[in-house]
Design a protein around this nucleic acid. Structure first.
Lengths: 346, 346
DNA sequence: CAAATTTTGATTTACGTACCTCAGAATTTC
DNA sequence: GAAATTCTGAGGTACGTAAATCAAAATTTG
């Protein structure tokens, strides 16, 4: 039988009230008595029954998710997943609020974080922007003892407790490796091959890191692949379409395209209307309705994906664990880089 | 405020005891009264608080995991993950027992299932063997109302409630697609390329399905890739080593190897000692210490993996949900086919 | 040594559900 | 219409913890 507070009281020779005072750090216990109780706790191997404790406290975990109001499919999907968690909140004892912020705007994010700080929730998740003022705001939340998880884009060397997202350098490296291997052969002659990179913004850390990983692998393992200057389309489908179309027109020998950001609808349209000598090899990020269709049609060759649902569920689990001072299961919370070819589409 | 049993009693104009009788299907309620209570339940949108109910029942979920006593790294890792779950069992209200069975032995598996049936646990997970007698034993468990989850290898069209494992046909297709693309070019001349397949046993469904997916893609998309007759090494490292060494000796022009089973230690040893004109392209299954090292060293080119930890945690979640008659979150329980290149090793 | 203060014990209520008993009411059966 | 049977209500205890009150004991302070 699992030991209970009653067992502790019996073993320590004190009353239940004193055990409760020790367990919940309430005042009014001499240190000798506290010692006896603590000894009993360790000797019995007591662990508090969280379900019973939460029931007694009639506790709900109040969490805030700060999400950029970006209209690309990935962010919409992410928001949808958070909504799903909101729908499940009653059975999970959570109370999740979604706060929208303008995208790519450090000031707005800081303002939201400050507002959140005032209401003292049990935890906060947000898509980070890598800026000093955001880091400072995060520090204030941390000092207020509010658990914090970054979603999708990280804020390293900050006071956040956890990052629920993929390793973007590894993702970039993987894309580079696939690009190199797929190009070697049919699409590459002795003079090498030219590759274009389409990004959202080099201000966002995840995009920078993907590019870094990609470039490193290409430079080291596939030296005769040349990378063109990065096209920054701000994750905007329309802008992406014109930029890619323009690039394909100028450079007829583009053999591969790596799209490391969002807004792939535009990329796909540009690819479908272009008619060069041969179709370029395309690797993109995030499995959405449009990239999935493009993959099935052979317009895109591979999609690297991060599972938004997993990220959201993981963020919630971690926030709960941190709120309770419990350890997290690292293996369960690692977000994978999914690689989809048309053969393993779910 | 979430409605409670007290609210139902108030709204329905009955006592708490009657509400309890209706909720827990106890006898002694006239159908008119039952109707009033049920109306109140639906109108209030009442859902029973599982945590409180489990506390009141001081319930623990007793689960049995039947695992083949195979000594390859994957099965050892799987068992390890179940052990981890056992370690967490006190905080998760589970009581998990591990039962070992001899591998590839339908009779032994049936005997274990029968033994499990006698003790009436709250759920059973097992690595299925695709045989009629196993299907029959599963039916008996199902008729006894015991939730059942197949792990790693499925028993389709049976009475199991859920399969916690990957889509092996898709895995085989993915391997075929990677093999075809990676071979096209440097390793393939006009005459095509020869590929060897190493399997455990064609008696196990997951191996058959992987081969099926692989062969289909090769036949359709890469017709000038020739597949040699399958080598069946019973997931035994020693046997695998001799068979692969022998095959490489006979067939100097093997350009690729697809290892779709376990026991890759032997394959790797054979590859390291062989010295043909050029290293074959190798795609294997399951990320273990040895395949990971081989991937890092460039002896293996890609590893398809199923996350044993995810499978075990998923099986437990699903068994719990089934035991409680709750729905499962399909997206959360889908086991991914992880693709690892040396660039995205975790 | 008395007074003030701190520490401790005993007891209670609560969280939301399960499960039990017993008495009384309603209904059915004869 | 009485007896037997079936329903229903009222109330309690339990699960393991939280949190409160109040009195009694121990300790410290003056």
């Amino acid at each position: 039988m699992k030991p209970t507070v009653h067992d502790i009281a019996k073993i320590a020779g004190v009353s239940l009230a004193t055990v409760d005072r020790v367990l919940n750090g309430r005042p009014g216990v001499r240190s000798v008595t506290r010692g006896k109780v603590e000894d009993a706790i360790t000797s019995l191997g007591y662990v508090r029954d969280l379900a019973a404790a939460n029931l007694a406290k009639s506790r709900t975990y109040s969490f805030v998710f700060i999400l950029p109001a970006n209209d690309n499919s990935f962010m919409i999907g992410l928001t949808e997943e958070v909504r799903g968690a909101v729908a499940r909140s009653s059975s999970e004892r959570t109370d999740i609020r979604i706060v929208d912020v303008p995208p790519f705007d450090p000031g707005a994010l800081v303002a939201s974080l400050e507002a959140v700080l005032a209401e003292k929730p049990a935890g906060v998740a947000f898509v980070a922007i890598d800026a000093p003022e955001v880091r400072a705001a995060a520090r204030r939340l941390s000092e207020a003892g509010i658990p914090m998880v970054t979603l999708v884009s990280d804020l390293p060397e900050s006071s956040r407790d956890h990052y629920a997202g993929i390793d973007n350098i590894a993702a970039g490296r993987t894309a580079g490796s696939l690009m190199g291997r797929f190009l070697s052969g049919p699409l590459m002659d002795e003079r090498g091959a030219t590759v274009a990179v389409l990004a959202g913004s080099m201000l966002v850390r995840d995009h920078r890191e993907r590019l870094e990983g990609f470039s490193t692998v290409i430079a080291h393992a596939y030296p005769n692949v040349h990378i063109l200057p990065v096209l920054e389309a701000r994750d905007d489908p329309a802008l992406a379409e014109t930029m890619v179309a323009e690039a394909l027109r100028r450079n007829a020998d583009i053999a591969g395209i790596y799209s490391l950001g969002a807004g792939n609808r535009g990329l796909i349209r540009a690819l479908q209307t272009a008619h060069g000598p041969r179709r370029p090899l395309v690797i993109a990020h995030e499995l959405t309705a449009s990239t999935r269709a493009a993959l099935a049609d052979g317009v895109i060759d591979a999609v690297l994906n991060q599972d938004a649902g997993h990220e959201v569920r993981s963020a919630i689990r971690v926030l709960k664990a941190k709120a309770d001072g419990l350890p997290v299961l690292a293996a369960q919370e690692r977000i994978r880089i999914d690689i989809f070819l048309k053969d393993n589409l779910p």
